[in-house]
Amino acid sequence: MSLSVEEVWQDVQSIRERVPLVHNITNYVAMEFTANALLALGASPVMAHAMEEVREIARISQALVINIGTLSAPWVQSMREAMKEAAKQRVPIVLDPVGCGASQFRTQTARELLATAAPTIIRGNASEIIALGSDRHETKGVDSLASSEQASEIAGELSARYGCAVSISGAVDLIVQGAQVVRVRNGTPLMTRVTAMGCTASALTGAFAACNPSPVHAAAHAMVIMGIAGELGARRAQGVGSLPMHFLDALHGLSKADVQALMQAG
């Protein structure tokens, strides 16, 4: 499946014009950075995990992003309730099974969330996707020990089972839905040395899903923009400490010319 610069840029413009509200139930490590990334892109973040309000927030949002990075029992229940309400309201759901396979609790929780409401997009690294769809565990905490291509078969099975797109991050990002497959070659290895980059990819995927009804296109476009912003940020960064700042600047100042010059996907 090929991507077009025009379609990717149309989604970016749509996010900037519509300013979709993206409801995040995410982890403590990622909250501030992902909120800032959504703002830089042009979306509106809300970080709400209290049981008393998650249904109400999910009801008024244009996307829901569930990230299991720092799990606790009350948060799991809030995630379930938010997903139920989002599904009821036909709000797109992005599930990031952070660290799936690293512990029985994480794996079980991720699978229970899948059973609660079918997500629109599952987005994770290869080891997380493998652990989510099988009993193979190839993880080092939240880091992947497998390539995106190694997870492609299981991604296809998950896509068929839940009727969703599956977005796998790696040296080459792989996005799968049915017979549609996209490979995104944008990004820089420096991004793997900064915490919350994967979580940010999921949050941005939520913004794209809010504005594009095609899960596979929304997921692929998000990874293209994530990767391009990473490349642009890395050009100015002195190292891992300054990359996040320049990444956010790149997202904020992104132009169609940047996409035309740098997009590597198909």
Rank of each mutant, 00 (worst) to 15 (best):
T195Q: 11
A222E: 09
T195H: 03
M223T: 13
M263K: 00
L251D: 01
M191T: 04
G241D: 15
L243K: 06
S214F: 08
G227M: 11
N212W: 02
A218L: 09
A219D: 08
Q238F: 14
M223S: 15
L262D: 05
P213H: 10
R235Q: 15
A257F: 02
A237C: 08
A220V: 10
M263P: 06
T192L: 10
A250M: 07
A210D: 12
G230P: 05
L204D: 03
H246F: 15
M197G: 05
G230F: 03
P189N: 05
P244K: 05
T200V: 08
P189S: 10
V240A: 15
A237I: 09
F247C: 00
Q260W: 02
P244I: 07
I225V: 15
A220E: 00
G233I: 00
L248Y: 11
G239P: 07
D258R: 07
G198A: 08
G239T: 03
M263I: 13
M245S: 13
A257M: 12
K256M: 14
S214H: 04
M226E: 09
F247A: 04
M226I: 03
R235V: 11
T200I: 05
G230L: 00
C199Q: 10
P213N: 06
S242D: 11
C211N: 13
A196P: 06
S214E: 11
A261G: 08
A203W: 00
T192P: 10
S242T: 15
F247I: 02
G241F: 13
F247T: 01
A196M: 08
R236M: 12
G253I: 02
H246W: 14
R235L: 15
S202K: 07
L243C: 01
S255W: 00
G206A: 10
F208W: 01
E231T: 03
M263N: 02
G227A: 09
D258T: 07
R236S: 12
G187I: 02
A209D: 02
A209L: 09
A210R: 12
N212L: 02
T192W: 01
A237H: 06
S214L: 09
M223G: 04
A234N: 12
R235E: 15
I225N: 04
M245T: 14
A196V: 04
M223E: 10
C199D: 14
A209S: 15
L251K: 06
I228Y: 06
G198Q: 03
A257Y: 06
G227S: 12
A229G: 14
M197K: 10
A237T: 04
V224L: 10
S242P: 09
L243T: 06
L190G: 04
G187S: 05
R235I: 13
V194M: 10
G230Q: 04
C199P: 12
P189M: 07
V216H: 12
G239N: 11
S202H: 01
L204W: 05
A250W: 01
